[in-house]
């Protein structure tokens, strides 16, 4: 009776030790695995984050739309965002592919997984989620320090805006493109930026992040400030829209501003985008 109990205990101990050993082994290999040397970015925002964190030399592939910073244009291209080329990605022999769930096809990740290529999905949408999103990329790429530094820099800059007065800057609208009329809706970095600057986005309750908006609704909600994102031919096309909006306070009081595309991508440039909007808003007073 006692003997069998002993034996049972023994086997349990052996089992436990083995278990510990395997756990230890897996931890050991994980922490000692070399951080990925060949990284592919499947989105312009991710490319900007990787560059800002200082991983330029390890980026071996980017999308055709990754145009910032300037050096990103010289990296090998792997196709579009919605239609990256699987073949191009595989032939670059990446250690890890960093992708996003809004834009990149879900099946793409499944295919890469099936071929044993590591992926990491960047899931942040809001400015407030950006620093932690950056930290998580750092963990995935095993370069915590570099990404922690970047996240801290962004957090510090954001702190300056967080002290801004709430709802003191009035109603705003950010027009991405006038024809068709696409504006920045809820859940976008632009919407967050407007809130951080003490404004209210009149398209905040729209369905979808970049909704098609109605001119009638703009007139009804009469924004105090209108921003236009710059782009080819924006001057001419925006003038046409502004003519129809002549009764809106923003147009009457000449509070229509043209700004860069810094806020279009959730990356380190949102800070300069925020500053840009802030400058315009303070100019008026």
């Amino acid at each position: 009776m006692r003997k069998s109990k002993d034996r049972r205990l023994k086997t349990r101990i052996i089992f436990f030790v083995l278990l510990l050993f395997t756990i230890h082994c897996s931890l050991f290999t994980a922490s000692n695995a070399e951080s990925p040397k060949r990284i592919i970015s499947l989105a312009p925002s991710i490319t900007e984050i990787l560059f800002a964190a200082g991983l330029e030399d390890r980026i071996v592939g980017v999308t055709n739309f990754c145009d910032y910073p300037e050096q990103a244009k010289e990296k090998p291209k792997i196709g579009g965002i919605a239609n990256p080329s699987l073949e191009a990605v595989v032939s670059l022999k990446p250690d890890i592919v960093v992708m996003t769930m809004d834009g990149n096809p879900r099946e793409f990740q499944q295919r890469l997984d099936a071929m044993g290529i590591k992926t990491y999905v960047f899931r942040s949408h809001r400015i407030s989620e950006l620093p932690d999103g950056i930290r998580k990329i750092g963990i995935a790429l095993d370069e915590k320090k570099m990404f922690e530094d970047l996240a801290l820099r962004i957090e510090q800059s954001l702190d300056g805006f967080n002290t801004a007065k709430a709802n003191t800057s009035g109603k705003m609208l950010f027009v991405i493109w006038p024809e068709p009329l696409i504006v920045a809706g809820p859940g976008t970095a632009i919407n967050d930026a407007i809130n951080l600057l003490g404004g209210i986005n009149i398209a905040e309750d729209a369905k979808g992040r970049y909704p098609k908006y109605s001119i009638e609704e703009i007139i009804r909600r009469s924004p105090d400030v209108i921003f236009f994102g710059r782009g080819k031919g924006m001057d001419r096309i925006s003038r046409k829209l502004l003519k129809r909006l002549s009764s809106v306070p923003a147009v009457k009081n000449k509070k229509v501003f043209y700004v860069s595309d810094s806020l279009y991508r959730l990356g380190p440039r949102v800070i300069s985008g925020l500053k840009e909007l802030e400058e315009h808003l303070s100019k008026k007073k």
Partner: peptide, 21 residues
């Protein structure tokens, strides 16, 4: 037309015949 989601681009590709996946 009522979905401004990024899935739209994917959907358009699919409709035109997409063999990439």
């Amino acid at each position: 037309s009522i979905s401004s989601d990024e899935g739209l681009r994917r959907a358009t590709l699919w409709i035109f015949g997409d063999l990439s996946i």
